[in-house]
Nucleic acid binder design. Structure first.
Lengths: 172, 172
DNA sequence: CTAAGTCATATGTAATTGCATATAATGCGG
DNA sequence: CCGCATTATATGCAATTACATATGACTTAG
């Protein structure tokens, strides 16, 4: 593609052609400048410290994630939880087993469709979650130190666009 | 902190106090507006499709991640790879075993310090990586569709700040 | 120069996850 | 109303991961 008058060719390359260094297929690509690597890195560090604290309260990372999903919509089916928690259904099925043993949730068949298992937080589950919330809140504040709410809003918009793009039909 | 003349109090609250809805301990918090959930979601979707394609080429997600680390610095020790690949050392040790079986890497003890295992991509490993690169590149372009390079640069800066914050001393 | 301490990796074992499949319930075409 | 396809979950089994610990190599105090 040729440069257009009034717009530097560099801009055209950067904005519309190949994403330059950002593209993992670029010769000058570096992980430290890769959006997806940095997302994974930030998410990893965020949970790394937190998991240790959560474990002291008998809650693993996947269990915590299921609890946060249930906080928003209850009751929820195994499939719904799996999708929201980014985990396979069979795995969620077993995580719910562990949560049942701990008395954190109940699991009842749906009255209208007996195939569906409806999972609900128990009072104990709700209480456990409330206990953990401030810990997670502090970690969040720590992560966002020195970042304006305007920048967080911008981050959200970009991440939402990326998620939406990737929910369209896949490659190949 | 007091309001400063010339700055609306709303800005002060939004920029400096409690992060409002973004904070996981807020009563109005929603996963769909949570930066860390969205990072995990975007990263998950990004790899979900890609892994299927990579598997056809005999490369799993962790193996691919190790290869991208090695592309940047070679040779690299088990510990170095583990840190960069966000995976435990013992796990990397076994992943390298599998890569050795596939002839993707060599592993030699460091001449000066015999404890260290130096891992290097073989010619076959380099070739495999080159073969996969355009596939990953297409997935990246798909993810970033409709997002300007300016926004990507902004995203990077914010993610780098978050990572830096989380690399400081942990909570509790 | 030696013994204790530290460091890097490897490995035994247990737990977790995912794939493939089984089971059971619902929906639908005829 | 029947049988076949589909859907939701559960489970046997294999692979992966992590924790705890072992092994071997370097480092350093004395």
């Amino acid at each position: 593609m040729k440069a257009v008058l009034g717009k530097r060719s560099q801009d055209i390359v950067e904005d519309q052609i190949d994403r330059g260094d950002y593209n993992p297929s670029s010769a000058t690509f570096r992980l430290a400048n890769s959006p997806f690597y940095l997302m994974a890195h930030a998410d990893f560090k965020y949970h790394e410290d937190m998991d240790k604290v959560l474990h002291k309260h008998g809650v693993s990372k996947p269990i915590y994630r299921v609890m946060t999903v249930l906080r928003e919509r209850q009751p929820a089916s195994i499939g719904t939880i799996a999708e929201a928690a980014l985990t396979k259904r069979s795995t969620i099925s077993r995580i719910i087993d562990r949560m049942l043993e701990q008395g954190l949730v109940t699991a009842e068949p749906n009255a209208e469709d007996n195939r569906i298992t409806e999972v609900t937080l128990t009072a104990a589950g709700e209480q456990r979650l409330r206990k953990l919330t401030p810990i997670v809140g502090r970690q969040f504040m720590r992560a966002m130190d020195g970042i304006s709410n305007r920048d967080i809003a911008h981050l959200l918009r970009t991440l939402q666009k990326i998620s939406a793009n990737l929910s369209k039909l896949p490659i190949e």
